[in-house]
Design a protein around this nucleic acid. Sequence first.
DNA 1: CAACCGATGTTGACAATGACAACATTGGTT
DNA 2: AACCAATGTTGTCATTGTCAACATCGGTTG
Lengths: 197, 197
Amino acid sequence: MSSYHHGNLRAALLDQAITVIGNNGVESLSLRKVAKDLGVSHAAPTRHFKSKADLLTAIVKDAYLELTETILVDAENAMSDDSIVRLNLMARSTIRWALNNRAKFTVMTNPDVSRFADDELKAALGAFSQTVAEAIEKATQQGFRKTVSVPTLLLYSVGAALGAATILTDEFMQSVLGTPNNDQIIAEIANQIIPLN
Amino acid sequence: MSSYHHGNLRAALLDQAITVIGNNGVESLSLRKVAKDLGVSHAAPTRHFKSKADLLTAIVKDAYLELTETILVDAENAMSDDSIVRLNLMARSTIRWALNNRAKFTVMTNPDVSRFADDELKAALGAFSQTVAEAIEKATQQGFRKTVSVPTLLLYSVGAALGAATILTDEFMQSVLGTPNNDQIIAEIANQIIPLN
DNA sequence: CAACCGATGTTGACAATGACAACATTGGTT
DNA sequence: AACCAATGTTGTCATTGTCAACATCGGTTG
């Protein structure tokens, strides 16, 4: 029962990478250091990720799957049949998830990841997009900005939620903008994005 | 009149770095390659930027100054005395600027830059923030979401504009979200962020 | 006008890193 | 029991950021 084989290296690499990114940013991520942290040789990661970009892509793919699941569950738990309320809750849920998963979120919005996106990432982002688009569609049918197209509202609402989350997860921007830092802020921002009556 | 001294290396470094980033992303930026492109030795950049992060910080500082100037001029040129219209135009102007300056914009939203932000960057972002905050204040006085605090509206509007621009400057996200790709889209998005009557 | 000096650029060096090739070990399958 | 695909290791290479020591310039000052 030697430890020649780690047993769960792929998952461990993802976890450790996220931890490192959370502590010191994507820029500081070193595959060799991560490997060393896990007690594994410097080339071991290449068996699971053919490049550093590939590892980041995997992180983002998982992140979108997780985020999609989260907003679906949160909207469901609210048990409201008001489609506009549900859309509002999805915005709320997205921002909250970003704040609870800062490291993953910062990787998601890293433009360098998009450049190496593969089909799996495309599918994960597609599922998220689809989920929000469907919620938007129902909201428009209930009267939410009914003169505006769904793709435009999708760009608006996803963009607004991600943008607000970007500021909220960035200490520097937050300090300069003088962003309020309390529990209410997430709900308030969601209410600006998707106003309720 | 040898060419031992470049004469304008600092500005040339910034320009070339922005070009490289525009072509292949921040990740691909190599100070040594940039130096070589400019016909200068590999260590020359250190005379102007004490680190790679320092160069990126300088790019972002310039970017915020430029963006602030742009939204001020655009709002001015509109010659509308309606504060809500002016705020709407600022959102429009911000998104347009981002699309016209993709490389700079992607660096602005890079979380790794915030980590090394210096006082100059802080001042530049502060000026931008101040400019938008003043426009918001006037809009609220004219009735725009008057029950909401200015800091919250600042977070919302800046976040929404930056977030929408993030998607619009990212080909991958755009392709998956099915974002409309036409000249009208900027105005439409601005109208979602700051609705006019 | 000449000596000086701070700013700017060069050369050389080093450690860290991503990536690849060749080899080793493992556990499950046939 | 032999095999083999998956997984991990060792060794190596080019690239890179950064620093130190040295070179050259242009402007300032006596």
